[in-house]
Simulated assay, not measured.
Amino acid sequence: MNFNFLSPVSDTVLAHNELLAEQALGKKIKIHSAQNGIPDLDGVKMAIIGVQENRNDVNYMGEELNFDTIRTSLYALFPGNWHTTIADLGDIPAGATLEDTYYALRTIISVLIERKVIPIIIGGSQDLTYANYRAYDTMAPMINIVNVDSNFDLGDASVEMKNNSFLGKVILEQPYNLFNYSVIGYQTYFNSQEEIDLMEKLYFEAYRLGEVTHAISMVEPVMRDAHIVTMDLKSVRAAEVGAKQKFSPNGFDGKEICSISRYAGISNKVSSFGIYEFKSTNELDATPMLISQIIWYFIEGVNCRVNDDDFENENNYQKYNVLIEDDELIFYKSIKTGRWWIEIPFLPNVNNKLKKHTLLPCTHDDYKEASHGKIPERWYKAYKKNSF
């Protein structure tokens, strides 16, 4: 395993960990230390990695990143009734160049995913999502990214990538592996009309902040279809974070961002999870504890995963056919969990992105609306993307 890029968790954090109660999370996880080296990954389900890279932040002023406050907060929390083993692999220091950091992150994520270990990445600037995405190049034909963010981060792909424009590079650079991109919690006044129109044109999904906070459970089917979840701390309102993180008076509150994180954890498909745009500070503030709780809820979600998407056995699901004009929509409902899916048909004679019938997660409300003659928007967008 090529984990030479990683630096160990600091002695300061380890010393603090020694003082914690035996039941604390810090006493239950395998930690990369200078003394003991990188822990054995046998049986590990999730691995925490810090990435000390923020040079592509549009507001970069030479600040260095340090995640000690996050680890100190996280280790002090008590685990739930969990059955999974967690490791903390330490940090990837900023490389000599940005490309060096991307390469290190991409390599480590690839190894972890191959070993069925879910990386939990703490960043740095959100352009690191690009390196995360590239780690899947040899593993999956089509990738879905969900971005919890106030911005779309589309940007201009013809200029150098920054933390607010990484998606342009993801869309336009070969190999083309992106099938769907969804933004949870965007705020219209932070996005140009051209970007909003482009999201529509590409049949990507965008959910406004007010829409999500009104019904947080709408996030669940979106997360159920994600491989990569990337979370920008700028999506959290200023009142919830420390002085250095304050971005906007509007955004998710702590309870909402943790609920979203838990939905990401529950998804059987999510195989990497990142929290970005952390700004280091020596002062005691709420941000490290908020990040710790976001991670806690993600781990909690992973421990609550249920395999309910086996549709080979007819005893596992109920099937519903709905006719809308010339379209026949086929819904599936898991008997085990009550979750719903809708079938995206395979289109012959079309350059299909999908090579077979694919099931798209949806809600019971989608089925009810279809029964009243309304085609679900998620189905329509997926169908259109598959027709390109």
Rank of each mutant, 00 (worst) to 15 (best):
N191D: 12
I120T: 08
K381L: 07
T358A: 02
V146E: 04
G301N: 09
L77R: 11
F67K: 10
S280R: 07
S387N: 06
I257E: 03
L202A: 05
Y102H: 13
F331T: 02
G155D: 03
D153P: 15
K244H: 05
A21L: 13
P119W: 00
I330D: 04
P8Y: 05
W341G: 05
N163V: 04
Q293V: 12
S125N: 13
I324Q: 00
S371R: 04
F388G: 06
F3E: 11
E53H: 01
K381V: 01
Y186F: 14
P141E: 15
A370W: 09
P288C: 10
L25C: 10
I29N: 00
F67W: 06
I109L: 12
S217H: 15
T363L: 00
K269D: 11
F346I: 01
F273Q: 00
F346L: 14
F67C: 13
C304F: 08
S192C: 02
N313E: 09
K201T: 12
A135Y: 12
G123N: 02
I260Q: 10
S292K: 06
K374H: 10
D91R: 02
R106D: 04
G26W: 03
Y203E: 03
A286T: 03
D225W: 03
R262A: 08
I228L: 15
L19I: 08
Y103K: 13
R115D: 07
N351Q: 12
Y181R: 02
K356C: 07
R262E: 15
A104D: 09
Q293N: 15
D153S: 04
I121N: 08
L65D: 10
I375S: 01
V350R: 00
E195N: 13
L178C: 03
R378L: 04
N180D: 15
D253W: 11
I228C: 03
N321E: 13
G301P: 07
G338L: 06
L178F: 05
D365I: 14
V302A: 10
